[in-house]
Design a protein around this nucleic acid. Structure first.
Length: 469
RNA sequence: CGGGAAGUAGCGCAGCUUGGUUAGCGCGCCUGGUUUGGGACCAGGAGGCCGCGGGUUCGAAUCCCGCCUUCCCGACCA
């Protein structure tokens, strides 16, 4: 048993490894209806920490939370031509309710631009009402053809921000601000996930948007995962929902809107970006429990010390818990490793005789001996190091698996197991179609200096292409 | 939605080709005991609409049809 690994190794079968982790770390289960997901307490605790971190950042930009209905009249979707075309294939539609056929079918929201647009039109009269900055935390439903837990479920949880502005510039600047100050900051600092920031080519844009900014992360198998997107909607939705305001001169003007979202998919990204053959690796910032204190055996003196250490750690603002698992030491340790707890304190008689305990990092498996009165201080240092190292390691992995190429043919080859970087001019048009045959898409476009372009028509843009989830 | 694989105890699987009466195994679970410095061991025990529905048959986990669900590769997408 000891030599048989608990999980399918990543190198043997990455998708299988992913499923094993989701199941064995008690993150989620499949629901009874195709593509639905039961998020288990541990998975949900991680999601709650993500929510809290994202929500605080959203509020810092001035947006306020609200809640709009799950049910949307089907006719709303149809008001924006591209939007309805993009979403129709994946809609869940209610045709019967209360025992009768409905006069107008009701759509279960796949996203809320339409209902929110309708209410923005009611609420906005004057330029003084702008910008209107809204966000909601909600579930949405998209009937995807190939569901996978967290990455693509029929129903998923997310936040969707919707804003209306008096000018194009203000809208574009706000969408960009959300991307940098909310998503990028969160992904980097909390999830320890380096992301490529850039715009989507027209083929990958949100249905109804004039510009989409994305944050793309690399998973350990070299595939890309879109972690968050911000859209400039121009006046498309304002036109469809009559979001007019009176300007200072007293004339009616159409507002400019934005929308932006990040979902439970980020949990999947967290798993695949940091996890290893021993299980999940949760960065300290998102870890519901950062430190677990484990006694090596069930003895009263050990338990007492363990208990005291948890108190000390909590007092030092470290989220620590006492291990209440049963069974052998090895079993309990393995269970915590599968769940990816950042740091483990081991309390054993040999160490304790010298007034010390062992601290073990989940990410590197490094073990260090620490005096009892220094545990909290040392734990905080190690957690901070771990958070940094996870980011650095992810960045190093991405760079090692990103190849500069000079033709579509080379890109096709390089993107089999990583990202390929090449001139957008080489890809634009036919190149994109060629790549697509190899299941490779343009993940994002950047300027040569790595900054986010305003439009795909800027000269000398760089395209990152990859396989994606 | 196209191509492939699969659904038997909580998990992993055998049994199905060649239908036959009490459906097995490992892990997990429960009870008792010994253990606990990297998935412990012994003894006893519980647990099954064999995915769902229909058909063939004296008889179906096994053969046939339909559906549902899961996984993989695509197309669609957060």
């Amino acid at each position: 048993m000891a030599d048989e690994s608990v999980l399918t190794p990543q190198s043997r079968d990455f998708p299988r490894w992913y499923q094993d982790v989701v199941a064995k770390a008690e993150m989620a289960d499949n629901g009874p209806v195709r593509g639905t997901m039961v998020i288990r307490p541990y998975g949900y605790a991680i999601w709650e920490r993500m929510q809290a971190a994202v929500d605080a950042r959203i509020k810092a930009t001035g947006a306020k939370n609200a809640y709009f209905p799950l049910f949307i009249p089907e006719s709303y979707l149809a008001r924006e031509a591209e939007h309805v075309e993009g979403f129709s294939p994946e809609l869940a539609v209610v045709t019967h309710a209360g025992g009768e056929q409905l006069a107008e079918p009701i759509v279960v929201r796949p996203t809320s631009e339409t209902v929110i647009g309708e209410f923005m039109a009611k609420w906005i009269q004057s330029y003084r009402d702008l910008p209107l900055l809204l966000n909601q935390w909600a579930n949405v439903v998209r009937w995807e053809l190939r569901p996978r837990l967290f990455l693509r479920s029929s129903e998923f949880l997310w936040q969707e921000g919707h804003t209306a502005h008096a000018s194009y510039d203000d809208a574009a600047a706000y969408a960009r601000r959300i991307h940098l100050e909310v998503y990028h900051d969160f992904l980097e600092k909390v999830l320890a996930l380096p992301c490529l920031l850039g715009i989507k080519p027209p083929s990958e844009r949100f249905a109804g948007a004039i510009n989409t900014t994305t944050a793309e992360a690399m998973m350990k198998d070299g595939k890309a995962l879109q972690m968050a997107t911000s859209h400039e909607l121009g006046q498309n939705f304002a036109r469809a929902f009559d979001i007019f305001f009176q300007n200072e001169a007293g004339q009616a003007e159409l507002a400019h809107t934005t929308s932006w979202g990040a979902s439970t998919r980020m949990v999947g990204g967290l798993i695949m970006a940091h996890g290893d053959d021993r299980g999940l690796v949760v960065p300290p910032e998102v870890a519901p429990v950062q430190v677990v204190v484990v006694t090596v055996r069930d003895a009263e003196d050990l338990s007492r010390v363990a208990h005291e250490l948890v108190g000390q750690l909590n007092a030092a603002d470290v989220r620590a818990e006492l291990d209440r698992g049963r069974g052998s030491f090895g079993r309990r340790v393995t269970d915590w490793e599968i769940k990816g707890l950042p740091l483990r304190v081991e309390v054993g008689p040999r160490d304790l005789a010298e007034g010390r305990v062992s601290l073990v990092r989940r990410d590197t498996a490094e073990k260090s001996s620490v005096a009892l009165n220094e545990v909290a201080t040392r734990a905080r240092e190690l957690l901070a190091e771990c958070q940094r190292d996870l980011y650095d390691a992810a960045l190093a992995r991405r760079e090692a698996k990103t190849a500069d190429v000079t033709s579509v043919a080379e890109a096709l080859d390089a993107a089999q197991e990583g990202f390929a970087r090449l001139a957008w001019d080489l890809v634009n048009g036919e190149g994109e179609a060629t790549l697509k045959k190899g299941a490779i898409t343009v993940r994002c476009l950047q300027r040569a200096d790595g900054t986010i372009p305003d439009s795909e028509t800027e000269p000398d843009l760089v395209a990152f292409v990859a396989k994606s989830y």
